[in-house]
Amino acid sequence: MRIITRLIAVSDLGSREIARRAGLPMQKISDLLAGRLEHLSIDELRQLYRTIDSQASPH
């Protein structure tokens, strides 16, 4: 979870764009950044990680 929140913080994408690309409501990103991990499923966390990681990886 800490890795994902750090990736969100340093990403060139804003939280809204990350949420949109991951197919999640913005509230889920807000919950994660506020430390409310229990509001996200493991699948949602994986999707967030894949979304951010694919944006950071060179193409």
Rank of each mutant, 00 (worst) to 15 (best):
5 T>N: 05
7 L>T: 03
10 V>M: 02
38 E>A: 15
12 D>E: 06
27 Q>T: 11
58 P>V: 14
38 E>V: 10
53 D>T: 09
42 I>G: 12
3 I>F: 07
32 L>C: 02
4 I>A: 07
20 R>D: 07
35 G>K: 08
12 D>A: 10
37 L>Y: 03
12 D>V: 07
50 R>S: 04
41 S>C: 08
24 L>M: 12
5 T>Y: 02
45 L>H: 08
38 E>H: 13
26 M>W: 02
27 Q>A: 09
9 A>W: 11
44 E>K: 11
17 E>K: 14
6 R>Q: 15
47 Q>Y: 02
56 A>C: 11
49 Y>D: 04
36 R>V: 03
12 D>T: 11
15 S>K: 15
56 A>I: 11
5 T>W: 04
46 R>H: 10
59 H>G: 14
28 K>V: 01
21 R>L: 13
17 E>Q: 13
46 R>M: 12
56 A>F: 08
7 L>Y: 04
18 I>T: 04
54 S>L: 06
41 S>W: 11
8 I>E: 00
55 Q>G: 02
23 G>L: 06
9 A>E: 15
7 L>S: 01
43 D>N: 14
42 I>Q: 13
37 L>T: 13
32 L>G: 00
27 Q>K: 14
32 L>E: 03
22 A>Y: 04
1 M>V: 11
49 Y>E: 08
45 L>W: 09
59 H>V: 15
2 R>E: 09
15 S>Y: 01
43 D>F: 09
23 G>E: 07
12 D>R: 13
11 S>E: 04
36 R>Q: 13
18 I>P: 00
26 M>R: 07
59 H>P: 12
42 I>M: 12
40 L>F: 10
39 H>E: 14
38 E>T: 10
49 Y>Q: 12
19 A>W: 00
33 L>W: 01
10 V>C: 09
38 E>L: 05
19 A>N: 01
58 P>M: 11
30 S>M: 05
18 I>G: 01
59 H>R: 15
55 Q>L: 08
3 I>W: 04
